[in-house]
Design a binder for these strands. Structure first.
Length: 230
DNA sequence: GCGACAG
DNA sequence: ATCTTGTCGC
C-alpha cells in the first residue's frame, strides 16, 4: 500500500518528541471513510539474539472475517523501547510489511494505543497519518489515563480519561474477561472504533486481526530460530 | 524526589 | 517484547 508521508527514523529522542507534537495535529478523530471491505491486523515480535524485528500484516474480508492476504517483513532494531516513543521502534518493520501488500486495507487495527498517549500520538495514530488510512489503537494494557471498571458483559465499556479529556474506551470484548484499551488511531470515531473491535472479536479477548498477525509473526521467529541452530 | 510506564 | 509449568475449564 501507498505511504503519503515519511520522515527520518534514525533520530534523537528530542526530535522524536517534536515530530509527534507536529504530526499529532493531523489526526482526524471522526469517521472519515466510505466502505470498509478489508480490515488488517498488525503485530511485531523480537528475536532475542539477532536484534531483529519481525512485523506481520494480515488482511481480512471485513464481512466474513476470512483471511485475504498476509505478509511478513524483517528489520533491524534501531530504537530503544521508551514508553511514549514506541512507534519509532516498531513502525519501520511495519512499513516494510505494508509495502509488500497487494491489497489495500480500509482499516488497520494496531497492537498499542492511538491517541491514548501523552502527546495524543501513539503507534496507531502515527501509522494512520503516514498512510492516511483509518486506524484503531487496541492495547492489552494501559499507557495512561484513569477509568472505572466497565460492566462485566461483552460490549460494555467505560471512558479512559486523561486531564479531563476522553482519550479512549476500556472495552469488554467477552463476558467476565479482562477488558482491552481501545482508542482512535486516525479517521475514525471512538464509538465506531469500539463497534469494529467488537465485530472482529467474536470469540476471544483480542481481535482476530491481532491474533492472526501474532501467530504469523511467531511462526517467522520460529523459522529463524531453527535456522540458527543448524 | 517518588512512581508509572503501549510492546 | 521475552523468560516460564502446571493447571483449571469447555
Amino acid at each position: 500500500m501507498k505511504q503519503i508521508l515519511d520522515h527520518p527514523w534514525d533520530i534523537t529522542e528530542t526530535d522524536a518528541l517534536a515530530l509527534q507534537k507536529r504530526l499529532s495535529l493531523k489526526v482526524i478523530k471522526q469517521d472519515h471513510f466510505l466502505e470498509i471491505n478489508y480490515v488488517a491486523g498488525i503485530d511485531v515480535a523480537y528475536s532475542e539474539y539477532t536484534s531483529q524485528l519481525f512485523a506481520a500484516v494480515v488482511v481480512f474480508n471485513a464481512k466474513t472475517l476470512e483471511v485475504i492476504e498476509s505478509v511478513v517483513a524483517e528489520d533491524a532494531i534501531h530504537f530503544p523501547y521508551i514508553p511514549g516513543l514506541f512507534s519509532f521502534r516498531e513502525l519501520p518493520p511495519i512499513i516494510k510489511a505494508l509495502k509488500l501488500l497487494k491489497n489495500t486495507p480500509d482499516l488497520i487495527v494496531c497492537d498499542g494505543q492511538g491517541i491514548a498517549h501523552p502527546r495524543r500520538f501513539g503507534l496507531a495514530s502515527h501509522l494512520g497519518v503516514l498512510f492516511d488510512v483509518p486506524t484503531i489503537g487496541c492495547g492489552k494494557t494501559r499507557l495512561l489515563g484513569d477509568y472505572i471498571e466497565p460492566g462485566k458483559m461483552r460490549g460494555e465499556r467505560s471512558p479512559l480519561v486523561d486531564s479531563d479529556e476522553e482519550i479512549g474506551s476500556v472495552l469488554r470484548t467477552q463476558n467476565h474477561i479482562k477488558p482491552i484499551f481501545v482508542s482512535i488511531g486516525h479517521r475514525i470515531s471512538l464509538t465506531t472504533a469500539c463497534e469494529w473491535i467488537l465485530k472482529i472479536s467474536p470469540r476471544y479477548r483480542l481481535p482476530e486481526t491481532t491474533r492472526q498477525a501474532d501467530q504469523l509473526v511467531n511462526k517467522a521467529l520460529y523459522v529463524l530460530n531453527s535456522k540458527q541452530k543448524n
